[in-house]
Design a protein around this nucleic acid. Structure first.
Lengths: 232, 232
DNA sequence: TAGATTGTTAATCGATTAACAATC
DNA sequence: TAGATTGTTAATCGATTAACAATC
């Protein structure tokens, strides 16, 4: 079984031309592909077929091939997909390795929890500071991250060209904090405040997290599954 | 402008017959409707038209009417929707008020953060305990919740008929913890461990949370929006 | 070469939107 | 009643699956 893949992970075939705009449904699935491929990579696997990946991920092989083809021919007939190459390609598409700089605003429980994870490094995002209003913790370090006064946030973000802000503030504060951040040039808001941030500033993107929605979905499924039991 | 709605929120029209199975796309939207309607309710609003709600939520009025009609005629021609009635109906559908009992497994940063929120009460879910392996915190209380040894988890869950477990444990522990919980009769797993729990036990439902996926999506959008800027 | 597996087209399915008659 | 707004059907759009020819 021969391969056109070279050792350095490059590819002989002419690929990578972005064709039509990538469907939103495909984009939503990319992080999941990225996760699974990363795992396979860590296991030392070199290649995988759409059929095998489909079994692992619980989707159809057809969907995998269709999805990956939105970005150009990543695979090779008779061989499958090179895991390292594919993982790298998806990383690229998702902006891993862009070296984005992030700050965490709000050093409460959730802020601390996020400060403690390796989630950011893993995706090439650098956390460089935390901000809070609580005098007692300003000046301290939380998991290696310095906590500054929220009064210094604007200047800090301008000076350090911060790309992303993680909002773990009370919902009453969300809009004013977001406003300050956007005026300081921050373009990505990851919002955990208990409100849906709607921002119209051009070039600014927001990802609203609603854990409560997920809890509700769980309750719904729990209820549905009980209802079904009852029917029997 | 008259109304068929009575003061107690009931409804004269014959409604509520569940027709065809509700499309998954609609179910995914229900928590969001629930949130917005809850907010309108707190603002003291009594009724709303699909047109107005569509503006607030950023979806089409057509979709709202289509969605709500999956569950029966909740609205009234010429009047709109009664907010209290509609909110209650969606609560019911989602299983709010079923009085589910939940435990939090893992008293790390995220576990604490979840213990501190009012997210559970708000949705009628009662947290009744936390579990951890750390001797130093076993026996203490975190935001009013007693922390027990994970060794006692099985018996506790059986005795108290626990419905839902929130997993904030290291990913290495996730499967063994999940296994213990399921054997103790827990039927809903809300999984924050950094791995996708696949459970085949009948009647057990799992909601996997991958915050990292959301961060990646944010990076993707950030990158796309920069790319667009560049084009100009 | 023969076998495996992709890339891609065509068919199916489901979700969204538009339009308007029904009706409050 | 007249105006407003739903419920519902039909049209459109997008996403998924199936199938197979291309090709490594």
């Amino acid at each position: 079984m021969e391969s056109i893949y070279k050792l350095d992970g490059t590819f002989d075939k002419h690929v990578g031309e972005m064709k039509t705009p990538v469907p939103p449904a495909v984009i939503k699935r990319l992080p999941r592909y990225h996760r699974y491929l990363g795992e396979l990579l860590r296991e030392g696997r070199l290649r995988i077929s759409s059929a095998e990946l489909s079994k692992i991920m619980g989707v159809t092989a057809s969907q995998i091939r269709q999805d990956l083809n939105c970005f150009g021919g990543f695979g090779q007939q008779g061989y499958g997909y090179n895991i390292k190459y594919l993982h790298g390609k998806i990383s690229e598409l998702l902006g891993v390795g862009e070296g984005y700089k992030a700050v965490i605003v709000g050093a409460g429980n959730l802020g601390r929890a996020l400060a403690a994870t390796r989630m950011f490094e893993r995706r090439g995002v650098n956390r460089i500071a935390m901000f809070d209003v609580d005098e007692k913790i300003i000046g301290t370090k939380i998991y290696g991250l310095s906590v500054y006064s929220i009064d210094d946030m604007h200047d800090f973000c301008v000076r350090n060209k911060v790309d992303i802000a993680v909002l773990t503030v009370p919902k009453e504060a969300a809009y004013s904090v977001a406003d300050t951040l956007i005026r300081a040039g921050v373009r990505g808001l990851w919002n955990f405040a208990n409100t849906e941030l709607k921002v119209s500033a051009p070039g600014v993107v927001v990802e609203n997290i609603h854990l409560g929605d997920s809890l509700m979905t769980l309750c719904y499924e729990l209820k549905s599954s009980s209802d079904e039991e009852d029917k029997k």
